[in-house]
C-alpha cells in the first residue's frame, strides 16, 4: 500500500498533475502581470494550456547533426527532476513526511533542469544552441555559489537541521541575515528560472532562444512544462526555506497563497523592469557582489547563534 501511496503522490497529488496545473496557472500569472506592467491586456486564463496542447500536436523535427536519443530525453529528465522536487516539498509541508537530508536532495535536484537544457542544447549541434549551453553552464557556476551559502545559512539558523520539515518551522526571514539571504536566494532563483535580467542563455534577440532553438513539437512542450513547473516549485521552495513554510489550517491557507503570489509577482516585476545583463556581468554580479554579501550574512548568523541574538 505504501508503494501505491507514493505513486499517487508522485503522479497526481502533489506531484505531476497538481504541479503541472498550478504551474500552468503560474505561467498565466506571469504573462498577465507582464502584460499589465506593459500597459497591455494579456492572454486569457487558459492560454498556457492551449499552448501546451498545441505543441503536443506539432511535428517534432530532429536536427540532422544532433544526437537523437540525448536530444529527446533531455527535456524529460528536467521535468522529472522538477516534479520530484515539488513532491518532496509538498509532502514535507503537508504531512511532514520527510527524510534526513531532503534539503540537500532538493538543492541537487534543482540543478538538473538547467543541466537538461544544457545537454539538450549541446545535443542539437546548432552553434547558437552551443553558445547558449555554454552560457547556461557559466550561469550555473555563477549562481550556485551564493545559493549554497544561503542554504548553509538556512541550515545554521534552523539549528543545524537538514530536514525540510524542521526548516519550514523556523521563519528565517525574521532577522538581518535572514532577510539578506532571502533576497539573494530570490535573485538566484531569478537566474535559475532563466528570467530577465539573467536570461542570457536563451536570449532571443541574441542567440534565438539558445538551447531551445532546434526544439519543436512534443520535446518543446515538455520544456515549456518544465519552465512552468519551475515557476511554481521555486517560489514554494523559497517559502519553505525562508518564510516559514506552507500552512493549511484555517486562515493559513489564505496566508500561504498570498505569500506565493507575492513572490511570484515580485519575480515577474523584476523580470520586467530590467534589461538583460551580459554573461560576464552576471558572473561578476553573483561572485563579487552576492557571494560576499551572502558570506557576511552567514558570519552574522554564526554570531547570532553563538551569542544567542535572535535578530542577527
Amino acid at each position: 500500500m505504501e508503494i501505491t501511496r507514493y505513486i499517487f503522490a508522485f503522479l497526481i497529488f502533489p506531484g505531476f498533475l497538481f504541479t503541472v496545473i498550478v504551474g500552468l496557472f503560474s505561467t498565466w500569472v506571469d504573462r498577465k502581470v507582464t502584460a499589465r506592467v506593459q500597459w497591455r491586456v494579456g492572454p486569457p486564463l487558459m492560454q498556457p494550456l492551449y499552448d501546451f496542447v498545441k505543441l503536443l500536436g506539432k511535428e517534432t523535427l530532429i536536427p540532422a547533426g544532433g544526437s537523437r536519443a540525448v536530444f529527446l530525453s533531455a527535456p524529460i529528465v528536467g521535468l522529472v527532476a522538477v516534479i520530484l522536487v515539488s513532491t518532496i516539498l509538498w509532502l514535507a509541508n503537508l504531512w511532514g513526511t520527510a527524510f534526513v537530508g531532503d534539503l540537500i536532495v532538493v538543492v541537487y535536484l534543482l540543478v538538473i533542469p538547467s543541466l537538461a537544457i544544457m545537454i539538450g542544447g549541446l545535443a542539437s549541434g546548432n552553434p547558437l544552441a552551443t553558445t547558449g549551453a555554454s552560457r547556461e553552464m557559466k550561469l550555473i557556476l555563477a549562481y550556485e555559489l551564493p545559493f549554497l551559502i544561503c542554504m548553509a545559512t538556512v541550515i545554521l539558523k534552523s539549528g543545524m537541521s537538514i530536514k525540510l520539515v524542521e526548516i519550514a518551522k523556523t521563519p528565517i526571514i525574521g532577522s538581518i541575515s535572514g532577510v539578506l539571504v532571502a533576497l539573494i536566494a530570490l535573485l538566484c532563483i531569478q537566474a535559475k528560472l532563466g528570467f530577465v535580467p539573467f536570461d542570457v542563455a536563451e536570449a532571443e534577440t541574441e542567440i534565438m532562444s539558445g538551447p531551445y532553438i532546434e526544439y519543436s513539437g512534443v520535446p518543446l512542450a515538455v520544456f515549456k512544462l518544465t519552465q512552468a513547473t519551475m515557476l511554481f516549485t521555486l517560489p514554494i521552495f523559497l517559502i519553505t526555506a525562508f518564510l516559514g513554510g506552507l500552512n493549511f489550517s484555517g486562515w493559513g491557507i489564505l496566508w500561504t497563497v498570498l505569500k506565493y503570489l507575492a513572490i511570484l509577482v515580485l519575480i515577474v516585476v523584476i523580470k520586467n523592469t530590467n534589461p538583460r545583463v551580459r554573461i560576464d556581468q552576471a558572473v561578476k554580479f553573483f561572485w563579487y557582489y552576492l557571494a560576499p554579501v551572502a558570506a557576511a550574512a552567514f558570519v552574522l548568523a554564526v554570531f547570532g547563534q553563538i551569542y544567542a541574538i535572535s535578530w542577527l
Partner: peptide, 16 residues
C-alpha cells in the same frame, strides 16, 4: 533597442 536588450517593457512603452 529595448527589445534587443530583453527589456520588453521599454519596447511596449515606446511603441505605445
Amino acid at each position: 533597442a529595448g527589445h534587443f536588450l530583453g527589456y520588453n517593457t521599454v519596447y511596449m512603452w515606446m511603441w505605445k
